[in-house]
Amino acid sequence: MKREEIKTLIMRVGGTNCDAETQRAFRELGAQAETLHLNEVVKRRNLMDYNALVFPGGFAHGDYVRSGAIWARLVMAKLGKELKAFIDEGRPILGICNGFQVLVEEGLLPGFEGVSAYPEASLAPNIRGYQCRWVYLKNENRGNCIFTGKVPEGKVLRMPIAHGEGRFVLPKEKEGALLAKLYENDMVVFRYCDKNGVAAEEKYPVNPNGAFHDIAGICNREGTVFGMMPHPERAFYWWQQPDWTRQTQMTQYGDGKLIFESIVEHLAKRC
């Protein structure tokens, strides 16, 4: 498929607010991207017209109950069947920040045994409350995740986070075993680290929210559903970086572009 034929759907509901910059990232790479309210997708029944789906950041439905919970229930109730088909066909689904929370609430991530009827993990309230800051991420994926196809294993990326509930946790009594399973299936993608790539060991502020095992992003077993707390769309251009005025050589793009580039390239190759 040619890049310009790739159709990406950025879904939104009341309270979603990172749709415009996410859409911009795909368009900058030559792919088509359209933002639609859930109500419109339900009305048009057109989810399967798209090659990729993104749940962008924001505060969907005010994040009442739990972050992402209401949006997740609405999607499963109104578009459950289509979404299942979308996943079964291996079409990529990306969740950023609030979108990651939605994917966890929908039972799509981690998805140890496929789509789960209940959330298998949680993005719990941060240890130190809401935070907006730039963090470093190490790519620990060995090649399963299609969203990091352009990111070499072990590479350190820099992106901002902005959330109050992003502390990835697994059920305490099984966390060791489940973590082993995440590694076994190559589902761990990003971990918080310092600028040299040394793991945060859950220390603040290198790990900004207290996430278990410094986990910032994971994918499903198939590598086609991916959620991350940091915002790649806010690290797309060089001038979005926090210290670009120090740089003597301005680079064309920031690290976040690699995520979008990976998706587009994957789709371009695949079809």
Partner: peptide
């Protein structure tokens, strides 16, 4: 206090209230 405010959303903040590392 500034960190409690999202100063990056919309992805258009070229010079931020808090600079660099």
């Amino acid at each position: 206090v500034v960190r409690m405010y999202d100063h990056e959303v919309k992805g258009n903040t070229a010079l931020k209230p808090l600079h660099g590392e």
